[in-house]
C-alpha cells in the first residue's frame, strides 16, 4: 500500500452563500464520503479544510493576498489515503463532495523522504 494525497480544488467565488441547513447537509456529505474510505481501512489522515484567506510569497519578495483572485481553482482542503495503485486511489476520490460543486480532486502519490 502506498500513500496518496488528495487535494480538493474549486473556484471559491462560485461557492454560494449557504444556509445553515445546507452547510449541515454539506458536512454530512463530507463525513459520509471520508468515513466510507475509513470503513475500507484506506484512510490515513482525514486531513483538513483550509481557511479561504492567505498570502502568497513570491521569489522576488513580493507578498500578495492569496492566489484565488486570479486563478479559478483554490485549494479547499486535503486528505491522505492509502491504496495499491494510483488507479485505486483515484477510485476512492470518486464521490468526493467537491466534485458536485464544480471542483476537482488531484490525486498524487506521496514520495516518502
Amino acid at each position: 500500500m502506498k500513500d496518496f494525497l488528495l487535494v480538493f480544488r474549486t473556484d471559491l467565488k462560485t461557492i454560494p452563500k449557504a444556509s445553515p441547513e445546507d452547510m449541515q447537509a454539506s458536512v454530512q456529505k463530507w463525513m459520509n464520503w471520508i468515513s466510507g474510505i475509513a470503513a475500507q481501512s484506506k484512510l490515513v489522515d482525514r486531513g483538513n479544510r483550509l481557511v479561504s484567506t492567505g498570502k502568497v510569497l513570491k521569489s522576488d519578495g513580493i507578498i500578495s493576498d492569496g492566489p484565488y483572485t486570479e486563478i479559478k481553482e483554490s485549494i479547499l482542503g486535503y486528505s491522505l489515503v492509502k491504496a495499491e495503485s494510483l488507479e485505486e486511489a483515484t477510485e476512492l476520490a470518486k464521490g468526493c463532495p467537491v466534485l458536485f460543486i464544480g471542483g476537482n480532486v488531484e490525486i498524487r502519490e506521496i514520495n516518502v523522504l
Binding site: 463525513m31 459520509n32 471520508i34 468515513s35 475509513a38 470503513a39 481501512s41
Partner: peptide, 17 residues
C-alpha cells in the same frame, strides 16, 4: 449514521464498517 461516521474514524473494525 453520523455517530458511526465518527466512530469509524477513531476505530476501525469490519463490524463497525
Amino acid at each position: 449514521l453520523k455517530l458511526y461516521n465518527e466512530l469509524i474514524l477513531i476505530e476501525h473494525s469490519s463490524v463497525i464498517a
